[in-house]
Simulated assay, not measured.
Amino acid sequence: MTVCHLYPDLLNLYGDRGNVISFVQRCRWRGLDVQVREINLDNPVKFEEYDFLFIGGGSDREQSLIAADLGARVDSLRAAVEDGLVVLAICGGYQLLGRFYRTPEGKEIAGLGLLDFYTEAGNRRLIGNVAVEAEIGGRKTILVGFENHGGKTFLNGLKPLGRVLFGNGNNGMDGLEGARYKNVFCSYLHGPLLPKNPVLTDYLIALALQRKGIGTELSPLDDSIEERANKAMVKRLLG
């Protein structure tokens, strides 16, 4: 499989690169050959060539640079998304996929418009540990992570990644976290997200294999340490 890591030099808040490391390592532990290509500003890219795309978080300045660069390639990205490309977008990368970002002054900065949601500046940062109940591969699980964002995201009927059990999620108001569309998964959870939640990592791997027409029955790995860490955090947050 081939992984596209978009703008790793600009979008890597809170160790978001760890999501790519986790995806790749869990593939290699199973004997799956994986290559990672890092795409930076002005680098040529054909999204249809990839099996997994990762977009991390960054500051407002970095996001504005990226929005202009990625906007020139949005048709290629949209076609790949509609064709089932597996995408994980975190925080700022999540916001970029939406319709717009509304500043405190009311100015709307256009996003890529790939997904039907919008983000507006909040009057306080939403910071802290988060627990989210999500349906992954047909079964409910609790995802854990850490959020730190000033923007508040609102879904226009789009399916969320999950329901907030602890923390703020998309906006601290409606109890929703992240967004899902086809094989696109968006979230505000850093941590990074995938090492903390191997069940989600394996689901993304299975979806990528399915899209390639390869069997999706993954050989089991020893996740006892990861599961203990997840349960410890859930117990700390939920009691």
Rank of each mutant, 00 (worst) to 15 (best):
residue 66 I to L: 12
residue 54 F to E: 04
residue 192 P to R: 08
residue 203 Y to H: 15
residue 97 L to R: 01
residue 2 T to N: 15
residue 128 G to L: 05
residue 211 R to V: 00
residue 12 N to F: 14
residue 144 V to E: 10
residue 233 M to S: 10
residue 60 D to L: 10
residue 200 L to V: 04
residue 181 Y to C: 09
residue 145 G to L: 04
residue 89 A to F: 00
residue 88 L to F: 01
residue 118 Y to K: 09
residue 14 Y to W: 11
residue 209 L to W: 04
residue 237 L to P: 03
residue 121 A to D: 13
residue 88 L to H: 06
residue 210 Q to A: 14
residue 169 G to H: 06
residue 109 I to A: 08
residue 159 K to A: 13
residue 111 G to K: 02
residue 110 A to F: 07
residue 197 N to S: 07
residue 141 T to Y: 07
residue 214 I to G: 09
residue 236 R to S: 14
residue 169 G to A: 09
residue 68 A to D: 15
residue 58 G to R: 01
residue 151 G to L: 12
residue 132 V to W: 07
residue 222 D to F: 07
residue 183 N to M: 08
residue 48 E to S: 15
residue 72 A to W: 08
residue 98 G to P: 08
residue 107 K to Q: 15
residue 9 D to G: 09
residue 27 C to I: 05
residue 104 P to M: 06
residue 44 P to T: 04
residue 54 F to I: 05
residue 135 E to V: 06
residue 119 T to C: 15
residue 145 G to C: 04
residue 209 L to Y: 02
residue 145 G to V: 06
residue 60 D to M: 10
residue 95 Q to A: 09
residue 30 R to W: 03
residue 115 L to R: 05
residue 177 E to R: 11
residue 136 I to W: 04
residue 33 D to Y: 12
residue 67 A to W: 07
residue 214 I to V: 15
residue 136 I to Y: 02
residue 82 E to S: 09
residue 180 R to V: 12
residue 14 Y to E: 12
residue 108 E to M: 11
residue 193 L to K: 08
residue 205 I to Q: 06
residue 121 A to E: 13
residue 56 G to E: 02
residue 109 I to Y: 05
residue 82 E to R: 04
residue 218 L to I: 01
residue 237 L to S: 07
residue 114 L to E: 00
residue 123 N to E: 14
residue 78 R to E: 05
residue 54 F to G: 05
residue 223 D to C: 08
residue 118 Y to M: 10
residue 152 K to L: 13
residue 213 G to E: 12
residue 71 G to K: 03
residue 216 T to Y: 03
residue 115 L to F: 02
residue 88 L to Y: 01
residue 235 K to W: 12
residue 57 G to P: 00
residue 16 D to S: 02
residue 28 R to I: 09
residue 5 H to P: 02
residue 227 E to W: 14
residue 218 L to E: 01
residue 218 L to W: 05
residue 128 G to C: 03
residue 1 M to I: 09
residue 160 P to G: 08
residue 72 A to R: 14
residue 78 R to S: 05
residue 11 L to V: 06
residue 37 R to C: 12
residue 175 G to N: 11
residue 41 L to K: 11
residue 92 G to D: 00
residue 95 Q to T: 03
residue 16 D to N: 05
residue 188 Y to C: 06
residue 164 V to T: 06
residue 88 L to E: 07
residue 12 N to M: 11
